[in-house]
């Protein structure tokens, strides 16, 4: 790349880096704040004395979390959910996107099928019908209620579909001449050449499964089935001060323990933080590539 030495271009660069740097900081600071609270004493945290550096440094909250079986159980369920859920997502995504990426001469009712999927992005059944479906299928209170609904993420299918369509048709034609079946073309030509898009889709569904909490609460039949974010939800929401009974304050005392809360939030965000840098470069590339031909 040729270095442009014009002053306006330099100014542009400086401003760009400053603004992006500030944006990055605004994402980072809350995390550091949470981390600092988790390492502070309870009184200092309640008093709002902690900003970016721990006050009365202590590991007590982490020792507390380490003893807390419910946290680790929820973590285990979340990890399992990501493995199974993302696995299912990827499988169905590829299986749907591949045929739908074909031209009309290869797949006659392609448009009809595409609409069949697309329409679900525009109109969803809503909470109550979904709840009824889950219940009638006997998924209530099972792990499968977390991964089977939404096993076909249509947005991801479209992303992948567009990527597949950019793969040169000549590759496919050549494979057909060599006698490859559609099945083989999909797995041995399209999938290996689409790693960027696949990584993007995998990241999107990993983030979804890791962060989703509402279904976790709605479809579970007891708190020991909660994935991590549902569990966190029950400890971080602020209690409503109106509508409390005379003896409900006990819950407030436990819930108000800021340091333990922050330790758990920090630990819960750690795995996804660690995954991001590795997939980030695919992520950016994949989004752009997949969406050009939208």
């Amino acid at each position: 790349m040729v270095e442009d030495r014009h002053w306006s271009s330099r100014l542009f660069n400086v401003l760009n880096y400053t603004i992006i740097g500030l944006l990055a900081l605004s994402c980072l600071i809350p995390l550091i704040h949470v981390f600092a609270i988790s390492l502070s004493s309870s009184a200092a945290a309640t008093g709002g004395l902690v900003t970016l550096w721990p006050v009365d440094f202590t590991f007590e909250s982490y020792a507390y979390v380490a003893r807390r079986a419910a946290f680790w159980q929820a973590m285990g369920i979340s990890v399992l959910r990501v493995i199974v859920g993302v696995g299912l997502n990827m499988f169905f995504c590829i299986m749907c996107a591949y045929p739908l990426s074909k031209e009309k001469d290869q797949f006659r009712h392609r448009t009809l099928y595409a609409w069949y999927f697309f329409i679900t992005m525009l109109i969803s059944g809503g909470l109550i019908p979904l709840y009824m479906v889950i219940r009638m299928m006997g998924l209530m209170g099972t792990f499968w209620a977390l991964v089977i609904p939404g096993a076909v993420p249509v947005y991801n299918v479209i992303l992948l579909l567009n990527f597949f369509r950019q793969t040169p048709r000549e590759l496919e034609d050549a494979a057909i001449i060599d006698g490859a079946s559609q099945w083989r073309i999909m797995w041995q030509i399209f999938v290996p050449t689409s790693t960027a898009a696949l990584a993007t889709v995998a990241l999107l569904s990993t983030v979804y499964h890791w962060n989703e909490w509402f279904n976790g609460i709605l479809y579970s039949s007891s708190p020991d089935q909660y994935p991590l974010q549902s569990y966190l939800r029950t400890i971080v929401i602020d209690m409503k001060l109106t509508n409390m009974g005379a003896n409900d304050w006990q819950a407030l005392v436990v819930v108000s323990d800021k340091t333990a809360k922050c330790a758990q939030i920090f630990l819960a965000s750690l795995p996804i933080l660690l995954v991001y840098p590795f997939l980030q470069r695919y992520f950016v590339k994949g989004m752009v590539l997949g969406s050009v031909k939208g």
């Binding site: 009824m132 219940r135 609460i217 709605l218 029950t234």
Partner: peptide, 19 residues
Amino acid sequence: WIVKSGDEYDTKLNTAIAV
């Protein structure tokens, strides 16, 4: 079923009543 925290209990119970 058992739900943790009061707000979520109401959400789940209201849904259950609705269906």
